[in-house]
Simulated assay, not measured.
Amino acid sequence: MKKICYHIPGMDCPSEERIIRMKLEGVEGLEALDFDLDGRKLDVFHSGKVEDITPLIESLNMGGRLNLVSEVDELPDETADHSVERKMLWAVLIINAVFFVGEMIAGWLSGSMGLVADSLDMLADALVYGLSLWAVGALVSRKKWVAAVSGYLQLALAAMGLMEVLRRVTGVEIFPDFRTMIVVSVLALVANSVSLYLLQKSKSKGQHVKASMICTSNDVIINAGIIVSGGLVYWTGSAIPDLVTGTIVFGLVVWGAVRIIKLSR
Rank of each mutant, 00 (worst) to 15 (best):
residue 2 K to P: 06
residue 5 C to P: 00
residue 14 P to E: 02
residue 14 P to I: 05
residue 20 I to D: 10
residue 22 M to D: 12
residue 22 M to G: 10
residue 34 D to H: 08
residue 36 D to I: 06
residue 37 L to H: 12
residue 37 L to G: 10
residue 42 L to M: 11
residue 43 D to A: 14
residue 43 D to C: 11
residue 47 S to G: 15
residue 49 K to I: 09
residue 53 I to M: 04
residue 54 T to H: 13
residue 57 I to Y: 09
residue 58 E to Y: 08
residue 60 L to K: 09
residue 60 L to P: 08
residue 61 N to H: 12
residue 62 M to R: 10
residue 63 G to V: 03
residue 65 R to N: 13
residue 66 L to H: 11
residue 69 V to L: 10
residue 69 V to S: 08
residue 71 E to F: 12
residue 78 E to Y: 08
residue 79 T to F: 00
residue 82 H to T: 13
residue 83 S to K: 10
residue 83 S to N: 11
residue 84 V to W: 06
residue 87 K to A: 14
residue 88 M to Y: 09
residue 88 M to I: 12
residue 89 L to S: 05
residue 91 A to C: 12
residue 92 V to W: 03
residue 92 V to Y: 00
residue 95 I to A: 13
residue 100 F to V: 02
residue 103 E to G: 03
residue 107 G to E: 01
residue 109 L to P: 04
residue 109 L to T: 01
residue 109 L to R: 06
residue 121 D to I: 00
residue 123 L to F: 02
residue 128 V to L: 02
residue 140 V to G: 09
residue 140 V to C: 08
residue 140 V to Y: 09
residue 142 R to G: 12
residue 146 V to L: 08
residue 150 S to Q: 13
residue 153 L to Q: 07
residue 153 L to D: 07
residue 155 L to T: 04
residue 158 A to F: 05
residue 160 M to D: 10
residue 161 G to K: 02
residue 163 M to L: 15
residue 170 T to N: 13
residue 173 E to A: 13
residue 175 F to W: 07
residue 177 D to P: 05
residue 179 R to H: 05
residue 185 S to L: 01
residue 188 A to W: 06
residue 188 A to R: 01
residue 190 V to K: 03
residue 191 A to D: 03
residue 192 N to K: 11
residue 193 S to V: 04
residue 197 Y to T: 08
residue 199 L to N: 12
residue 202 S to H: 08
residue 205 K to A: 10
residue 206 G to K: 01
residue 210 K to T: 12
residue 211 A to D: 03
residue 211 A to Y: 06
residue 212 S to A: 15
residue 217 S to Y: 14
residue 218 N to P: 00
residue 220 V to P: 02
residue 225 G to P: 11
residue 227 I to C: 04
residue 228 V to S: 11
residue 230 G to Y: 01
residue 243 L to H: 07
residue 244 V to D: 09
residue 246 G to D: 05
residue 251 G to Y: 06
residue 251 G to K: 09
residue 253 V to Q: 04
residue 255 W to R: 13
